[in-house]
Amino acid sequence: MDTSTGLLPDGLDQRLADTVRAGALMSVTGPDAAVAETAVNGVLDAGLPVVRIRLDSAGASVAQPEFARLLAAELGLGRHGAAPWPVADVEERIEDELARRGVVLVVHGSERMLTEALYWLYRVWSRTAPGRRLTVVFTGSQGFDRVLARPALADLKSCIFIHHRLAA
């Protein structure tokens, strides 16, 4: 930290604050996923309503239904002792809950998300009202930059407010 300004030398804290104010999308990549996760966790304002999803425990790659299940569980939307909801119902409940809470969603290990999961999350973000827009912070290894280069994710990539790359 620069003691004269109180900012991290690379400006991650200010860029994250700008992203939250804008209700925008942000990607933070590092030489490995753990570096990016640690950096983002270190600068998140403790007063922010944050929902964190860690994909390193979800397997090699994460499809949209698995991501929706993880997010629903993190939001406390599970059904106790009953049959699981149909996927469409889960997605609708997630969208409603994220819009209601106005949270910062941090997805650690984003390079593990399959195109369908990333595009679904982009659609959820784009449907929230601009004044209450969900903030999404994708963290991961530099492999996430390659994931974003997929043609099917061009819309998502074009809407990312800030791409922050951490030095090794």
Rank of each mutant, 00 (worst) to 15 (best):
G131A: 12
L134R: 04
G59R: 10
P49W: 00
D89A: 10
V147G: 05
S126H: 05
I160S: 02
E116D: 08
E116R: 00
G42L: 03
S57E: 13
S57M: 07
E111T: 01
V35H: 14
G11Y: 03
L75P: 08
E92F: 03
L121N: 11
R52Q: 13
Q64V: 09
T5A: 01
S141V: 01
G6D: 11
E92N: 13
F67Q: 02
S61V: 15
G23W: 07
E92V: 10
V137C: 11
A63H: 02
E37Q: 15
V28Y: 04
H164V: 02
R21L: 14
S126E: 09
L8D: 11
E74I: 09
I53R: 12
Q64M: 12
D155E: 15
F144I: 04
A99L: 05
W125S: 07
W85L: 13
D89P: 08
Y122C: 09
A17Q: 12
I162D: 11
V103P: 15
L25D: 12
V20I: 08
D56P: 04
S61P: 13
E97S: 14
R123F: 07
E91F: 00
G47R: 01
A72Y: 00
D10N: 06
G30Y: 02
L70G: 01
G11H: 04
L166R: 02
P9E: 03
P49L: 06
V90H: 04
G78S: 12
N41V: 11
V90Y: 02
D10M: 00
L134K: 07
L121D: 10
G78L: 11
R21H: 14
A83F: 05
P151C: 04
V43W: 03
S61A: 15
L166G: 05
R101P: 08
H108V: 10
M1N: 08
E95N: 06
T29V: 12
L105A: 10
T5C: 03
V87N: 08
R21S: 15
T3K: 11
L48M: 15
A167R: 04
H164M: 03
D13T: 04
A68F: 01
H80G: 05
G6N: 13
G23L: 05
V20S: 03
D56I: 06
V124W: 00
A168T: 03
E91Y: 01
L48H: 14
H163T: 08
S57N: 13
D13H: 01
Q64R: 11
A129K: 04
V35M: 14
V104A: 11
R69I: 06
A39K: 05
L48K: 13
G78M: 09
R79W: 00
Q14R: 12
H163K: 05
L98S: 13
R21F: 13
A34E: 15
L8S: 07
R150M: 07
V103K: 06
Y119L: 07
S141A: 11
A88Q: 09
P151F: 00
T128C: 11
V106R: 09
A33Y: 15
T135C: 05
E74D: 14
R52C: 13
P65Q: 01
G81Y: 00
G6I: 13
V51P: 11
A60F: 12
P130M: 00
G23F: 08
Q64S: 09
H164C: 08
G143C: 09
A72W: 00
E66S: 14
Q142I: 06
A73D: 13
R54S: 15
E92K: 10
A39S: 08
L16P: 14
A82I: 02
